[in-house]
Design a protein around this nucleic acid. Structure first.
Lengths: 183, 183
DNA sequence: AAATTTATGTCAGCCATATTGACGTTTCTG
DNA sequence: CAGAAACGTCAATATGGCTGACATAAATTT
C-alpha cells in the first residue's frame, strides 16, 4: 500500500450531509431537527417494542393500554380520536386486551350505549413497566439540559401539536400548565 | 383522510389524567413528556403523510427518499442500518422509487458490488417539499422558545438517541456540533 | 487459483395493522 | 315513534414489516 492518494470520489468517504438546501421559497429547512426527531422517536418507541414482544403485543396494543390507563373511563370514540385509526382497526386490538384481562369495559352511567374503558391492575402494571423504560431514557436526556431546559422542551413539544380540533385527551393535556420544574 | 367528527356536545365529566403513578421502584414516571412526544410526532409525520398520498407513496418511501437525498451516495446496507428494516422490505420500496425516477443507482468506484444511491432532481424536489411542511411546524414551535431554547431541544433530542453502535448517518449527525440557532 | 465472504437482488409466503363499506343492536333524543 | 348516536362485526383489501431460501457478481482470504 504505497501512497494513499484517493482520486476516486468515494473510497472511505466521510459520509456527510448534502449541502443544506432551501425550500421552494428560499426559506432554510430544519434538516437537523427533522432527523433528530426521527432517530429520537425511533429509539424512544424501541424501548417498549422489545418488552411488548414478550407479551405477544405490538405498538397498537401499547398505545391503547397507555391511554386507557392514563385516562380511566375513556370512551371508545375518544380513543379513536386520539389514535386516529378506524374502529375496525381498534376493534381487533381492543378485543385481545379485553380477552386477556388487561382492560375491562363498563357501561356508561348516563349513557348506557357507551363502553367506558378501564385498565385492570394487570394492565396498569404493563403500562407502568413500559413507561419506566421510556422514563429512564427521558430522564437521561433531561439531565443534560437542566430544569429550565426541560420546560423549554415541554413548550416545544406542545407547540408542535395541532391545536385545531383537539381530542379530549389533548384538551386535558393542554388544560394543565407546563409544570415548571422549579429550580 | 376522513376525520371522524361525531363530537357530541354531550356533557361528559371533565376528562383528566389518572393520578401520577410511580414505577415499580418508586421513581416518578414522565407521563407528560411521553404523551407530548406521541402527539408531537403524530402531527409531525402527519404533515408529510397528506402530501405523500397524492404521489401514491407512504411513509416508507419518504424515509428512503429523505436519507438518500440528504446523504448522497448512501449504500443500500447503510440505508438498512438507518431504517432498521430488512433488505426485502427495503427492496419493494426502493424498486418503486427507482422505476419512477426518484432515485438512481451508481456502481461503487472502489467496490463494484456496491450500489450507491442518489436522488434525482425529481426526488430532491419531493423531499424538499415535505421538509418544507415539517419545517413550518418546527419553526412555529421554535419561535416560542427562542434560540437558546432551540439548542436545548437539540441537546435533548440528541441525548434521546442510542449512541451504542451508531450507523453511518448517525455518526455524521453526531460529528456535527449542536449548531447554534442563528437569527 | 480456489474457496469463501460480502453486497445486493429476488422469489415465496406469513403476519400485523391499517383501510373502506355495509349492516345490526342497543340506547338516547327530538 | 323516528332518527341519530355509540358500538360491534363481517368481508375484502393494502401497506409494510418479517423469515427463509437461493442467485450473482465482486472482493477477499487461503
Amino acid at each position: 500500500m504505497a501512497d494513499i492518494n484517493f482520486s476516486s470520489p468515494v473510497l472511505s468517504p466521510e459520509l456527510r450531509a448534502a449541502e443544506p438546501q432551501a425550500g421552494a421559497d428560499g426559506e432554510p429547512l430544519r434538516w437537523d431537527i427533522i432527523e433528530l426527531l426521527f432517530f429520537a422517536y425511533r429509539d424512544f418507541v424501541g424501548d417498549a417494542d422489545q418488552e411488548l414482544e414478550a407479551f405477544g403485543f405490538g405498538r397498537a396494543h401499547h398505545r391503547v393500554m397507555h391511554f386507557v390507563t392514563r385516562y380511566p373511563g375513556l370512551k371508545v370514540a375518544d380513543l379513536l380520536d386520539v389514535l386516529r385509526i378506524t374502529k375496525q382497526s381498534l376493534g381487533r386490538v381492543l378485543k385481545q386486551l379485553l380477552d386477556e384481562g388487561y382492560i375491562v369495559q363498563k357501561t356508561g352511567n348516563n349513557d348506557r350505549r357507551q363502553r367506558l374503558l378501564f385498565a385492570t391492575p394487570k394492565g396498569e402494571a404493563l403500562v407502568a413497566k413500559l413507561a419506566g423504560l421510556q422514563t429512564r431514557r427521558i430522564d437521561h436526556a433531561l439531565e443534560q439540559i437542566g430544569p429550565a431546559g426541560a420546560d423549554k422542551v415541554r413548550q416545544f413539544l406542545r407547540a408542535m401539536i395541532d391545536r385545531d380540533d383537539p381530542d379530549k385527551v389533548l384538551e386535558a393535556i393542554f388544560r394543565t400548565p407546563v409544570a415548571a420544574a422549579k429550580e
